[in-house]
Design a protein around this nucleic acid. Sequence first.
DNA 1: CGGACCCTTGAGTCAGGTCAATGATAGTGG
DNA 2: CCACTATCATTGACCTGACTCAAGGGTCCG
Lengths: 249, 249
Amino acid sequence: MSSERALALLRHAPIFQGAQEPDLLPLAELGRFSVLSRGQHLFQAGQAVESLYVVALGSVRVYRLSRGGRRELTLHVEGPRQVVAGVAAFQSRAVYPAHAQALQSPTEVLALPVDAVREAVFHTPALAQAVIAYFARRQAELLGRLDSLVFSELGERLAAYLLEHSAAPHALPTNSELAALLGTVPELISRKLGEFYRLGWIVLERAGAAHRAGQRRGGTGPAGRRHAKRGGALRKTPAPCPLFSPVLL
Amino acid sequence: MSSERALALLRHAPIFQGAQEPDLLPLAELGRFSVLSRGQHLFQAGQAVESLYVVALGSVRVYRLSRGGRRELTLHVEGPRQVVAGVAAFQSRAVYPAHAQALQSPTEVLALPVDAVREAVFHTPALAQAVIAYFARRQAELLGRLDSLVFSELGERLAAYLLEHSAAPHALPTNSELAALLGTVPELISRKLGEFYRLGWIVLERAGAAHRAGQRRGGTGPAGRRHAKRGGALRKTPAPCPLFSPVLL
DNA sequence: CGGACCCTTGAGTCAGGTCAATGATAGTGG
DNA sequence: CCACTATCATTGACCTGACTCAAGGGTCCG
């Protein structure tokens, strides 16, 4: 039964944190899994909202395009157990406000019909409470995003990103992906990383031996790649590039 | 009884749209009105969240400061019936994420204790539903804000603002206020408005005869003030400045 | 009249962005 | 194994929007 998998997934989804199994059962039964490959879209901005998705495997990037379509801004990258379009599902004008695409190659999501979700949430206090808490968290994140974009400059945002993601040695996303995440263009990411490298804030390493876990960087210029650390008042060093680990200094 | 006024206010607050009077009664009874004068703070970012506020009269500006404190970004300006700190009230780490201050001189707000609000919302499906819808709207607004800040340049944001607020002839906020709203500094607002004026996109008029409705602009440079129109693909003309009315062209 | 604010401007600086060329890598189909 | 193509990263040249600093004037209030 796929509804068992669905139930297990829903039980651990933060958006429903605190809900009891019986509350989630009806939703789990309506859920349908589907598999996407890297680059495939779950939905495009402007489409009518039909489903809310829970990531089961892989990861999904939610992003908006600039009017000209020349630039994009990544709003979220959701991994397993995270929800995509969780907010849109409760909006009255039911169109997705952003695009969503799979980032890795097997990416599996559970689609839940929005009507059923609304129904369940509105009739189950525990669910409603969980959703409210989730929305509040979400908005706090967005606010943080907002003022980092307005108040801090690129170097700072990049350094913050690197520090935040330096827990385990791992590969850096593509420069384009980083650019979309930080609200800029790939060229600037390259320059900044180069600068950090020259300053000794980061170390770099070929992606060579790396497992090709869904996405890996292609060519590498002159010196290979860098890795970074820094920030307004931050202090930390980085390690190997596509792969890196943090080291305090 | 002030609780009657409170109830009337709550019944028309969008955050509780759809709720029935009996659901709101307990909240209304716990509400306390207070009056602030221009510039006075309802709360500062970082303080523990104790109340959620519903504006009864006047208007409240919610804003964040940059780390250095040199710049500020206005997140919302809430008028009568609107809620301040509606999202913060449901966050687990209970500290206000922003500052809030009265914009006009009598500004009256109804303070509701957050515990009571949470209690009421979590136990009343109609309220929970209303709050969820409100949060979803709120997030959509924030998203719009986000990408206008990331994707469009100042002239465009200013024009958009002017168009959006040109319904009735009325005074423009201070340049500093506009700057905070649009994520920039007062000097640039002045330059851009001047530019729009020279282009004939806006007309201006001394604030002279204007009623001093809480805030009015002080001195006026050379030509007085401007008024604006323009935008990526927008078409509209404006009228007198501090006071203006829109005119299609 | 002095002080506190505002608005307006000129000058100068710089981060961030555009455009385009160069080199590499990985994957594909032979 | 190899030519071929698509995707990336890196850089130099150059442009410009946005910001800072500072000065000049106004208005309003006490």
